[in-house]
């Protein structure tokens, strides 16, 4: 069963990446999807990032009870946790529910209401037309969201640290800048691009091959969220193992 779906998924991707019939129409779709995926997710990403940063700062401080450890280490740990893990991974897990579920239910509904059949009868490569703009839009906009998320996460920590007295603003900034290595940003962005691709393509695959009616559309959305979340976590481990 796994190999059947894996093979089908690869063939699906092959169809997605075939030459578009009309670049102009595809470009319009990409812009529309960028707005839906990127701008539409900005609010939720901003909220979770600020809170994740704040919580990381407080919990790190809670565990560092020794006076021998400099306080600015809280800034170092918060920075690495937010940039390397929370912004790319937690954001993508949240987006797999918001964006992945939406992609799957949209394509599933189009399938059961014969809209995909209508595209195919017209001679349109339905896989390419419906899925490629979503993947391109996600791979472009989600890394931007993640960069915003990193900044807001650190801002959340910077605000909440001095406010609760666990670390001063100067110590936090000093920690964030201590032994700075731009490589962690690169690793985070590699993760983000990979996770974005997995989330959109797996969700689209689940929705595109929906059979039945409203019940099955719901099942496809659930599968899309579950499978893409598991794959994101698996890919997270692989990237960490390989790059760090």
């Amino acid at each position: 069963m796994f190999f059947y779906h894996f093979g089908k998924y690869l063939l699906f991707l092959k169809n997605v990446f075939t030459k578009p019939e009309n670049f102009k129409v595809y470009w319009k779709e990409i812009i529309r999807e960028m707005n839906l995926i990127g701008v539409g997710s900005l609010g939720i990403i901003a909220v979770i990032s600020i809170f994740l940063g704040a919580v990381t700062c407080i919990q790190t401080a809670y565990q560092l009870v020794s006076n021998l450890i400099p306080r600015d280490i809280i800034g170092v740990i918060t920075r690495d946790s937010v940039i390397l893990e929370f912004s790319p991974t937690i954001s993508l897990l949240v987006l797999s529910g918001r964006v992945g579920g939406s992609i799957s239910s949209q394509l599933g509904t189009m399938r059961v209401t014969e809209q995909i059949d209508a595209l195919e009868i017209m001679g349109v490569n339905s896989t390419g037309f419906l899925v490629l703009p979503k993947i391109v839009a996600a791979v472009i906009t989600i890394p931007m969201l993640v960069i915003i998320s990193m900044f807001l996460g650190l801002m959340g920590a910077y605000i909440i640290g001095p406010l609760t007295g666990v670390i001063s603003g100067t110590e936090f900034i000093s920690g964030v800048l201590r032994d700075w290595n731009s490589f962690i940003i690169l690793v985070a962005l590699i993760k983000t691009v990979l996770f974005s691709f997995l989330m959109t393509s797996v969700s689209a695959y689940q929705g595109f091959y929906t059979k039945g009616g409203a019940l099955e559309v719901g099942e496809s959305s659930t599968k899309a969220v579950v499978y893409s979340s598991v794959l994101i976590l698996f890919a997270d481990y692989l990237v960490a193992q390989i790059l760090l």
Binding site: T113, E114, Q115, D117, A118, E120, I121, M122, G123
Partner: peptide
């Protein structure tokens, strides 16, 4: 296919 028009039951 470009020469085919189709009216679906649900209009699609």
């Amino acid at each position: 296919r470009k020469e085919i028009g189709m009216l679906f039951q649900s209009a699609a």
